[in-house]
């Protein structure tokens, strides 16, 4: 577990991080979210010991973060960078050795990952000759080649096509299942919804939310329910009565419909089921939770309003 305790950092009187406190549990995919300039990159650099905080401490598995943790951390920076004049295999071995691996292990692991990503034939290609996507894959391998316990990924999916996005996400899930912790900083909310367990939301150097993805989505839910049924729309309108408001209708054919309704007042999911039962042939009813994109926007807007007041 990584414990972040009262971390603050300023640059020329500009506060980048302001007293952050939260924990990153072991064996999770942890989302680090926030708009541009929120302080994510500063926090990531502090976690990677690239810069030091002005105040506060970070503990990794109970021990204060120090140079011995370098070998346990992997890092994929947002701004990708590799030596263009080096061959793929040499670059990866070089970076693995910097993380404390022996030449033999570095070479063995590099070959393993090149094989795994089916890019063994790139081994002796120069970085300069790689396409952006290829380069991204090599950069990802560079972050994981030394088998880190904690993996910090800053926008890991940018530059990948959908197939490779899937490949990377599956790889992250696999690492999580192996008990590794992944800290994911991204603006891709769909991937956050898909793979993140806990997230923190930073805004203007402060922590404004910290919870599981599900709890955050529930916390800003807006009473929307999705219904798929067979029947007719008059029967639906009668069933909803004044308790629920019809927002959106989609005809699926053969008298099948998919609709979105919003509750009125203090109505609940049970009220909706009771209203619909016996009046329509129900195929599916579910509460429509807001997307992480909506959660993100909602929390930021709320924070902005509070700040303005």
């Amino acid at each position: 577990m990584i414990e972040i305790n009262q971390i603050s950092k300023s640059f020329d009187r500009k506060v980048a991080l302001d007293g952050l406190i939260f924990q990153i549990p072991k064996g999770q995919i942890f989302g680090l979210l926030g708009p541009n300039g929120a302080g994510k990159t500063t926090l990531i650099r502090i976690l990677n010991q690239i810069i030091l905080p002005d105040n506060g401490t970070i503990r990794v598995d109970g021990k204060l973060l120090n140079e011995s943790h370098w070998k346990n951390f992997g890092y994929l920076p947002e701004e990708r960078g590799l030596y263009k004049s080096m061959k793929v295999i040499d670059m990866l071995v070089f970076l693995a050795k910097l993380r404390g691996m022996s030449n033999y292990d570095a070479l063995k692991n590099t070959n393993y990952w090149l094989d795994k990503f089916d890019i063994k034939e790139w081994s002796n290609k120069y970085i300069a000759s790689l396409s952006k996507g290829m380069s991204q894959k090599v950069q990802f391998i560079a972050a994981v080649v030394h088998e880190p316990e904690y993996l910090i990924l800053d926008e890991p999916l940018s530059g990948f096509d959908p197939i490779n996005v899937e490949l990377i996400l599956n790889e992250l899930k696999l690492m999580k299942s192996e008990g590794k912790s992944i800290i994911l900083s991204t603006h891709n909310m769909q991937s956050v919804e898909e793979i993140c367990d806990d997230v923190v939301l930073l805004h203007k150097s402060k922590l404004i939310a910290s919870d599981t993805v599900e709890n955050l989505r529930s916390s800003v839910k807006n009473g929307l329910f999705s219904i798929r049924f067979s029947g007719n729309m008059i029967a639906l309108a009668n069933a909803l009565w004044t308790d629920f408001e019809l927002i959106e209708t989609k005809e699926l054919g053969n008298n099948r419909f998919q609709v979105l309704v919003r509750k009125r007042g203090e109505r609940t999911f049970e009220d909706l089921i009771n209203n619909l039962m016996g009046k329509l042939t129900l195929e599916a009813v579910e509460e429509k939770l807001p997307s992480m994109q909506e959660v993100f926007m909602s929390l930021i807007t709320k924070e902005e309003v509070l700040h303005a007041e």
Partner: peptide
């Protein structure tokens, strides 16, 4: 050059 091609940040995560 290390700075402009951003390799510096990657390396600084593993070396002083």
């Amino acid at each position: 050059k290390d700075k402009s091609n951003r390799v510096a940040e990657l390396m600084l995560a593993s070396v002083k």
